[in-house]
Design a binder for these strands. Structure first.
Length: 285
DNA sequence: CACCAGGCAAGCC
DNA sequence: GGCTTGCATGGT
């Protein structure tokens, strides 16, 4: 993998274990969307960017080399060797197939506040509606930025939304989740939920803290731990994973936690994403 | 009209 | 502790 400056962005030559569709469409993030020309446009770190697969590598438009090194390298998890992870996980035939299918997945290190709010919205909801609600949230409270002829909205900084109320969220049509969002914003703003602090804590301790937020339960906490805090021993268990673990491994709902810990261990989060993506795209009704 | 969607809190025992 | 039920909203 080699980074070089090109046009108005940077080119990643010969990226390994990374595909745009696998990474942005595997359900871990909600604000990167495939365009007609197969590129992906998303907003992160306060600005829209465009990823495209070109013959000599992956081009990211609208970022500087400094921004790439300081933020996007970590966001894209490019410093991790996925070959080792895949090798460690390839101990059963199901996982081998899942890795073959979604081998271009990288687990994004998403911005904390956005991850918290997005996954609270995600509960008992479907992906198109989640994406629409998160987008609407940014449209209501974020900053508008024009890019390539369209308007994009940043995810608002937490200080700018600390005084919003349940009624401000009414246009989003997120039902009973509205009060959960308000509680989370309050705890993000007060420092009760602090990204730097939680990152340094163990999986268990960080989870305990997250569970104190009204609206964050076992599954949502695991998503935040995995997709924003780098706790790869998390194995988020939703309806799809329950179905997949039963069908593919014969593991009952109540034994999933025990099974993943014993068989996937410190790579549980990666295993979960390979299984989730494999299940959703092959078994989707 | 049912039933479901990347679950959760509250109320039972 | 574990198990059950109600929950907002939109889609099928």
């Amino acid at each position: 993998m080699k980074i070089s400056q090109q046009k108005n962005g940077i080119l990643i030559s010969a990226p390994e274990d990374f595909s745009l569709r696998n990474t942005f469409d595997c359900g871990q993030c909600f604000r990167f969307n495939e365009q007609e020309d197969k590129s992906f446009i998303g907003v992160a770190f306060g600005k829209p960017v465009c990823f495209s697969e070109e013959e000599n590598g992956i081009y990211i438009d609208n970022i500087t080399p400094d921004e790439f090194n300081e933020k996007w390298l970590k966001f894209l998890d490019f410093e991790r060797n996925y070959k080792i992870i895949k090798e460690k996980l390839s101990v059963d035939e199901t996982m081998k197939k899942a890795i073959e299918f979604g081998g271009g997945i990288r687990i994004l290190r998403q911005e904390f506040s956005e991850c918290v709010i997005s996954f609270i919205i995600s509960q008992q909801n479907n992906i198109p509606k989640i994406k629409k609600a998160v987008e609407g949230f940014c449209r209501l409270f974020g900053e508008k930025i024009s890019y390539m002829g369209n308007d994009y909205y940043t995810f608002p900084r937490i200080e700018t939304i600390k005084n919003i109320t349940v009624s401000d969220l009414e246009p989003l049509k997120i039902g009973y989740r509205d009060k959960y969002i308000i509680d989370a914003i309050e705890k993000l703003n007060s420092g009760f939920l602090n990204c730097d602090e939680l990152e340094k804590m163990s999986y268990k301790d960080a989870k305990e803290r997250l569970l104190k937020v009204h609206g964050i339960g076992n599954k949502v906490a695991d998503c935040i731990l995995l997709f924003s805090l780098g706790k790869f021993d998390a194995f988020p268990t939703d309806t799809w994973i329950k179905k997949a673990m039963m069908e593919l491994y014969g593991v009952d709902e109540k034994n999933i936690e025990k099974y993943s810990k014993a068989n996937f261990g410190e790579y549980s989060g990666f295993a979960q994403q390979y299984i989730f993506y494999y299940m959703r795209w092959n078994k989707a009704k």
